[in-house]
Every structure is written in structure tokens, then in C-alpha cells.
Amino acid sequence: MRIQVPATTANLGPGFDSCGLALSLYLTLDVLEEATEWHVAHDLGEGIPTDATNVIVETALSIAPDLTPHRLQMACDIPAARGLGSSSAAVVAGIELANALANLELTPERKVEIAAEIEGHPDNVAPAVLGNFVVGAKLDGEDFYVRHLFPDCALLAFIPQEALLTSESRGVLPNELAYKEAVKASSIANVMIAALLQNDLELAGKMMERDLWHENYRAKLVPHLAPLRALTKEHGAYAACLSGAGPTILIFAPQEKADDLLSVMKDFDTTASVLSLKVENDGSVTTR
């Protein structure tokens, strides 16, 4: 059995803790034979546990404590601590593992509910389960979300070598915003989402770059955001924004501008990884 979960980018600028998009990078988990204890084989480094303390196994056991241990083979091209949903992908993989081994027959809605409860909000986990573009909210323990097809465009990721933990990136955010500032921030997000639903990426891009919820505060942790935003704008991009908590920058652009943008992004920092991605439509998938 194989479980595949996509990477995700959250926020899209002003859609803070609410908007998410599934991307074409993947965590892949092959479920092999039964064993006396859990073992997760991978080549992702010593920081990722290979036993029952692995997040995938911990998540599965939190849902179905009596699961029979198995040997698992994990591969992942989602870079950790880069704002591309690696932890959410592991949580969703654990939910899929429990669902398959315990024959729980969880609905996609129930998978999102469990994952959002673990992660605290649905912005990464909802698109990881459902695919494509999801706008969601967790209110008083209840999940509300809408899935929609994202407009066609080039998606380019600028991934620095340096990691940035979500806890560190959240630590620079204010505890509160002035009422007028919050209203303005909300209006920007509303226009951005409305523009996306009408396939108007030019207007959506303008709003993506005017976020007031988080990017101004995180900018000191991601010094490449402002110059890369200016550079990609010069070469025809719709927008550049933090992917999740950063430090990855996601660039939205017309398809015909992709090759030129990839070249200038690589020249901007030769140590960074620059990837051309696609929207993943299907979300998490389990095949036997």
C-alpha cells in the first residue's frame, strides 16, 4: 500500500491562517509487512525518527491505538522548516495510515477535522487532504472551508538553504492589531480571495503583496523577500509572497514568464533551490 500527500503553501499573503494551496511536492509512504515494532525507513537525516515516535506513527496511533506495527518506507521531497507544509503532510499521512490499516472509512471531511484539530487550523491540512485551493476557518471547534480550483499560472518556489521554524516565525507576530488596521487587513484578504475566484490573478497579486497580518513582522527574518519581490515584479510576476511562515517565497506568474523568472531567481541566489511547481488537484491518495 502506498500513501501520497502533497506539499502545501499557506496564507498566500493576506489569507493568514485561512488560505492554502496544494503543490506538486510529495511525502510518499509505502506500507510494507507487519512487524513486532514500528520502523520507518528513510534517508531524510537523523532528525527524523525511525520508530514509533515518528509523527506519522504517533498520529496514526492517536486515532487507532491498537494498530499492528508495520515496516514503513518513507520518501519526502518537501523540505522541512521551509514553509511548505512538511509537518502537515506527515500528520495527514498518519491519518491516512490509520484509516487504511484500521479500515476506518474516514470521509475527507473527517480527515480534515482530525488534522485541523492536531495542527490548530486548516490552512495547510485542508488542501493536503482535499487538493487544490482551500479557504477555511476553525471556529469554536468546528471547521468551515471551501475548496475551489486555483487559476492557471506558473508557480515558482524560491527555497533558501536556511531553515526557519514556524515557532520562531510566529514569535515575531503581535498579540493584537488596532481595529482600523484589522479592518484594512481583512478587506485586502477579501478582495484577494474574490479575485482568485474570478480568475483575476493581476488583482489577486496586488492584494497578495499588501498583506497586513504577518509579512511586515516576519520580513526581518526573511530579508530576501523584499528584493526578490521587486526583482520578480520587474520580470512580469503577478506576486511574490511568503509560503506559510517562510523562508520559502512563492512566485505567481503568467506561464509565458516562467522561464525568464526561473533564470533571474537562480541568479539572485545561487545557493537557493528554485523550483517550478504545479497545483496538486487530488490531495492525499492511498493506493493498494
Rank of each mutant, 00 (worst) to 15 (best):
E34T: 14
G45M: 02
G13H: 05
D140E: 15
A189V: 12
A137K: 06
S87M: 09
A182S: 14
P108Y: 09
E168V: 15
E105F: 02
E96K: 09
A22M: 05
W213R: 00
V285H: 07
T107F: 09
E117Y: 05
V92H: 04
L149Y: 05
G246N: 07
V183M: 06
Y26W: 14
L221R: 04
N175E: 14
Q161K: 12
R288H: 12
V172P: 08
F158R: 05
W213K: 01
N199G: 00
M208G: 08
D43H: 10
F144H: 13
R218G: 08
K111P: 01
E117D: 12
A178S: 03
C241H: 12
G13F: 03
G205V: 05
M1P: 01
K220V: 12
A35D: 13
N175R: 14
V129M: 07
T36C: 05
V5R: 02
G20K: 04
A52L: 08
Y26V: 06
G15L: 11
N54P: 01
E142C: 01
T8F: 08
D30H: 10
L228G: 09
G83H: 09
P65M: 07
K111G: 00
L97S: 06
E176M: 05
E168S: 11
C19Y: 13
G283M: 06
E96W: 11
F144I: 11
A80T: 11
D77M: 02
A60L: 06
A10G: 03
P79Q: 09
I56H: 02
V92K: 01
P127I: 10
V222Y: 10
T270K: 10
S273N: 10
S87Y: 04
A126M: 10
